[in-house]
Design a protein around this nucleic acid. Sequence first.
DNA 1: AAGCTGATCAACCGCCACGTC
DNA 2: AGACGTGGCGGTTGATCAGCT
Length: 297
Amino acid sequence: MRRCKANSEKPKQKHKKGLWSPDEDQKLRDYVMKYGHGCWTSVPLNAGLQRNGKSCRLRWINYLRPGLKREIFSVEEEETIITLHSMLGNKWSQIAQHLAGRTDNEIKNHWHSYLKKRVAKAKAETSITSSTGNTDSSTSPASQNSSSNGSIKKIQGSSSTTETEQSVSPVDFPVDQACNKVPKVMFAEWLMLDQFRDQNSSANPAVDNKHNNFDNDNYYYYYYNSDFQEDLMMQEIFLHQELGNLGSEVVYNQGQSNIGENMFKMNPKFEEQLPENGFVELISGQFNLTSDDHIYL
DNA sequence: AAGCTGATCAACCGCCACGTC
DNA sequence: AGACGTGGCGGTTGATCAGCT
């Protein structure tokens, strides 16, 4: 973690709190788009905002950054959240990594406002039906996955070595989705994954050798890694912008208020589409990815 | 129409891990 | 080694809205 030396000397100033105005949003968006955030504490100073860096960061991550979905959660997303929550607990940031375009805050809110009750209700119904000998457990989240995704095995949580993940109990999880572990969806913030579905028929099947050289016959996980700094992508995009080389690969629209729809239009360089559950199926068996493995695009 | 209640969501707070000095 | 600053995370709060009485 890089320390912001310049800012350790800045005078304390009163920071504005509360809801962000459109003007503040625009200032922050323009600044980050142009320069990247770098050190967050310097962002409000340079962007002319009376906010603290933390607030700017949060606003960017939860609202302004490219690729965020603003629509309601799909059934598949909800089931993914429920499944992952049963594995990981309240690790919202980790759960968010598996849901492209969703933020941890958004997922957390949705859980507390809706999913938690739904799960509780399902559990209650399951306990009732099981006590009465009724074997129909289709109302439980795991069973919903089961019924809709076929084969189920008892699997352990992620292979990650974190204490939290090691401590999780086995849960029903669809093997077809999870393989050996739940993938991290790369580019969650950046790729409008839905567009891949729409554009699949016209997608360029060629795989960019610069970024990977996988067999075209395989499916690919789109891996998101929180360590994969958005800055890296930003730099790439800015570089393209500087060079005027966006071409047909990336069309980047600045200054659009509807970020989710307008930030990117990308011709995917992968031939396979995402399934409805948001995971790309890994079928080759040639890749034995660990939780630390990432495929960089 | 007014008041109440619950749901939703944006934002803040406090803590922690990590890097730097 | 310890202090400090920053970023990240989860928990919580408060404003707003919708539905109900």
